[in-house]
Design a binder for these strands. Structure first.
Lengths: 142, 142
DNA sequence: CTTCTTGCAAAGATTTTGCAGGATC
DNA sequence: GATCCTGCAAAATCTTTGCAAGAAG
C-alpha cells in the first residue's frame, strides 16, 4: 500500500480505480495537468473515467494535501502531486515543468510587516514562482 | 485626464466608453470582481457592454498593469484596480475585501534559495495572502 | 449489506471567436 | 478617413448536479 493509499484510507475514503488512475496519471506527468487533461489521460487506466469524477476527486485530494493546485500564466489552473510538508511550486515558463520547494520561515516577518501596513491579520498565503528550469536554461544558452 | 487615461493613451490605446465603465466599476467596488460581475455592473454606465469586451479589456488592462488579478479561495479569479509599483494583494476570507501591499526586497534571498534547491532560474512570482481584514477582526471578537 | 463512489447525461456557467457596424484619433 | 474597438451571436470549453447502478469495506 503506497503512501497516499494509506492516507486516504486513514481518512475514511475508499480506494477506487478512478482515484488510483488519477493519482497515477499525475505522478507520471512531467507537467501539471488540468482536470480535463487528467480525465483524458486517466481513461487509459480506467476506461469509464469521466470529468465529474475527476473534479470531485481533485477536490478531495486537495483537501487531503495529496495534490497541489497551481496557476499557469494564462490563469488556468492545473494540478501536481504534492510532496509532504509545507511547500510551494515553481513553474517553468518554457516547458511548464514544476518543482516544489519548502516554505521558509521568513514568512513570520513578512506577515508582521503586512499586518502593520494593511491591518489585516495574515492567515495564509498563495505563493508560486515562475522561472526557467535547468533544461530550458541550457536550451536558451544555445 | 486621469492617471490611467494618460497611461492607456500613451500606449496607443483608445479611450472608450467600455474601458471607462470597466475601470470605474472596479475602482468603486469594495471587493475584487469577476469578469461577468464587472460586465453586469458596467452596464449601468455603458448599456451595451458585453462579456466579450470585458474579457478583452481585462487582458489589456492587466498587461498595462492597471488591474491586478487575484485568485479567490474557490480558485475563481477576480480583478481589482492595481496601485502603481510592485505590489501584492491580501484578501479577507470573510468579506472578500482586498488590500495591496508593496513587495519586499527579501525576495532576492528567497529567489537565491529556491534557485539553489531546484535549479530553476527565478523570474517572477505570484504572491497573495489570505487573512482577516480589520472590520472582520472586530466582528469576530464579538 | 451499508455506505460511499462512479459515470452518465444534462444543465449551467464561463470564455473565445468572427465579423459587421461604430467610435476614436 | 484609417484603424481600432465594440457588441452580438454562436461556438467552444469548462464545471456542476441529480440520480441510478456499481464497488468497497
Amino acid at each position: 500500500m503506497s503512501e497516499w493509499e494509506t492516507r486516504l484510507a486513514a481518512s475514511g475514503y475508499r480506494l477506487t480505480a478512478a482515484r488510483r488512475a488519477i493519482l497515477q496519471v499525475l505522478s507520471e506527468s512531467p507537467v501539471p495537468l488540468s482536470p480535463l487533461e487528467i480525465c483524458r489521460q486517466g481513461q487509459a487506466r480506467c476506461t469509464s473515467l469521466g470529468p465529474a469524477t475527476v473534479y470531485r476527486t481533485l477536490e478531495l485530494l486537495e483537501k487531503e494535501s495529496l495534490v497541489r493546485r497551481v496557476y499557469q500564466e494564462n490563469g488556468a489552473c492545473a494540478y501536481l502531486p504534492a510532496l509532504p510538508g509545507h511547500r510551494h511550486a515553481i513553474l517553468c515558463r518554457s516547458c511548464g515543468r514544476a518543482a516544489e520547494f519548502p516554505g521558509s520561515e521568513d514568512w513570520e516577518s513578512l506577515a508582521a510587516l503586512v499586518q502593520q501596513a494593511t491591518g489585516y491579520r495574515v492567515e495564509g498565503h498563495l505563493l508560486q514562482l515562475m522561472g526557467l528550469c535547468p533544461d530550458c536554461q541550457r536550451e536558451e544558452a544555445k
